[in-house]
Design a protein around this nucleic acid. Sequence first.
DNA 1: AGTTCATATCAAGAGATTTTGATATTTAGA
DNA 2: TCTAAATATCAAAATCTCTTGATATGAACT
Lengths: 129, 129
Amino acid sequence: MNRKRCEVEIERLRRFIPEKDHFEARTQKLISLVDRLEEETLSPEVKIFKALADINRLKIVKLLKEGELCACELTVALDNSQSTVSHHLSILKNAGVIKERKDGKWSYFRLSDGAVIELLNQAKLLMDE
Amino acid sequence: MNRKRCEVEIERLRRFIPEKDHFEARTQKLISLVDRLEEETLSPEVKIFKALADINRLKIVKLLKEGELCACELTVALDNSQSTVSHHLSILKNAGVIKERKDGKWSYFRLSDGAVIELLNQAKLLMDE
DNA sequence: AGTTCATATCAAGAGATTTTGATATTTAGA
DNA sequence: TCTAAATATCAAAATCTCTTGATATGAACT
């Protein structure tokens, strides 16, 4: 969002809003808010939400709430192909939602933080409301 | 996930795990967990995460944290086309993340609940960790 | 060393989402 | 009633994401 364009737009919008002072305040607030929204800050957040925005990955996360599981157990549980599960696990790991521990030929996964559970709880709260 | 297939898999896995009793307990737990994961319960949650899994929609939500804004203000702020913003707003509304109030020819949007802000806070917590 | 199993990676196809431009709908005001 | 503005909707193109099947890698066991 570039500031010049925004100011041009303010001029345009100004014509349609009766209380000019109030409008002035609104758009000023808007401009400063947009300026503070940096894409670099937002993309790790998008990554987390993207990671949770899939039914298979959400199932994985819910299974891991109860404790550590290996990739092979998750493959059985989800009834998906091995490569699909591996792909989903890498997306979750990449987003920082889960952590991996290797033991011989097995890979064990666990939730990386209690914040994940809180995230799910808040989503449920919003859902039920 | 069907139970019979799961039990066949247990037989297969049993051969690779030394402590049979421990394994038995693990897989039993796994079976009961999977049985409790219903797709119907999970999809509204997926919908919420999908709604937040886009940089433009996340920007909208962050702008709305500070208060109500109309669609035209959001269009200016996001520097996107009118139809794109309208589309993103309808996805957020549909997921229950935002609420709409119509006033004349304007549509004003606001976060539907404090849970949305908490959701973002938890994501940030996870991100920073 | 050779085999087997667990997991990762890759390329291709199927499917979903996002953006765009055009066109509708609704509301306010002349 | 006519016009202009705000928003919604639609179809098509562009872009992602998911799944699959094939193959690669690396650990454990013989």
